[in-house]
Amino acid sequence: MVTSMTGYGFAEERLADGWISVEMKSVNHRFLDVLFSLPSALRSLEEEGRKIVKEKVQRGKVDITVTFTGTPSALGIEKRLHIDWHLLRQYVREAERLQACDAFDEKLSLNDFLLNEQIVSIQEETGEAPSVRQAFLNTMRTACSELMEMRNKEGQELSWDLVRYMQHISEGLSTLEARLPEVQSRYRQKLEQKIKAMIDTVDEDRLLTEVAIFADKSDVSEELARMNAHIKQFRDTLKEAGTIGRKLDFITQEMNREVNTIGSKGNDQCLSKIVVEMKSILEKVKEQVQNIE
């Protein structure tokens, strides 16, 4: 089954004090690359979320955005006032020493210490929030299922296009193979006319030799056989399970190589036109294959 590497999935779940949502976007990539963007309070759950993706996705770059809307307490976050008492005592002691020197008129003010971030700070503490964890896992699974549904649907459409392209190439090969005898016959006639224009009589043996040389140089029977084998292998691969994108890409490269060889051997305008059409189709195939998992 063909699976595309392009997809989108979204899921959200309501909590007692807010909402949590997961958005997934995937594009083509040589390997599996999963990137998370999520609240700091949920960072500890990233590995669990990554495992959910890896269970279903084999290749592609997957961007995941996790959003939480609600009160911090819903995430198990509590804000606490922290005072560095040791540092505070040093400040007070040194301030009193400065005042004892009559160097300053100001008296000690409480604000001088409350506004000092080195002494007084507000820190967040994250506690256990099992409901948030379960909601995160639920939305991850749902979003991932939607992502795969879209990837599979697009993969099926890609498969139909590729099957159609293979059919066009196969028809082009049949047309090319059928025209080869005509091309050789036309070359014999042209060669005979040229020889007659130069001399009165035509050496039949020499003519046959020249035609045989041309036929040997323009023989593409091996290339045609390999092309037909590649097409069959391509079609069979489309029916395989798992990651088939790289294999299809390799087969496409081999087909392109054979078509180039056919084009270099075919000394005929009609054959060149067929080769150009096949190369154009293979470019489309190559582009489509790049997006298959």
Rank of each mutant, 00 (worst) to 15 (best):
R206F: 10
L147G: 04
T71N: 14
T175N: 15
R164W: 12
L282D: 00
E48L: 10
A135M: 04
M278D: 02
R97A: 14
E254G: 14
A103K: 12
M255C: 06
I52G: 02
Q99G: 10
G9Q: 02
L147D: 02
R188N: 14
E46S: 08
L38K: 01
T71V: 08
M148S: 03
E128M: 08
D249V: 03
F68H: 11
E78K: 15
I262P: 10
I251H: 04
E177G: 08
E125W: 03
L98G: 10
V2K: 09
G76I: 07
T142G: 00
E192Y: 12
T71F: 14
T139N: 04
K239T: 15
A11F: 02
A95N: 13
E283S: 03
S185Y: 12
F31G: 02
H86P: 15
S272A: 13
A215D: 08
Q118W: 04
I169L: 00
Q90R: 12
A135P: 05
A135Y: 00
E240K: 13
S185H: 14
S131V: 10
H29V: 04
S174K: 13
R14M: 13
L108R: 03
S40Q: 12
R80W: 14
L38W: 08
I169V: 11
R30W: 09
V2W: 11
G70F: 02
R30G: 06
V163D: 12
E149F: 07
E177F: 01
G18M: 02
S73I: 06
G155N: 09
E293R: 05
L115K: 13
R206V: 12
L87S: 06
A103S: 15
Q58R: 15
K25F: 00
R80H: 15
K51T: 06
N116T: 01
E55F: 09
R179Y: 12
K51I: 01
V22G: 00
A178W: 02
K54E: 11
N111T: 06
R188Q: 11
G263R: 06
H230A: 13
E13S: 11
E283V: 02
T71L: 15
L224A: 07
Q184F: 07
S272W: 05
E182R: 12
S44P: 15
D84N: 11
H168A: 12
E12D: 04
G70T: 00
A103M: 12
R14T: 14
S264N: 10
I64P: 03
S37P: 11
N256A: 02
R133V: 09
L180W: 05
M278C: 04
F214H: 12
I231W: 03
R141H: 05
M278P: 01
R59A: 07
E23H: 00
T65L: 05
V275S: 07
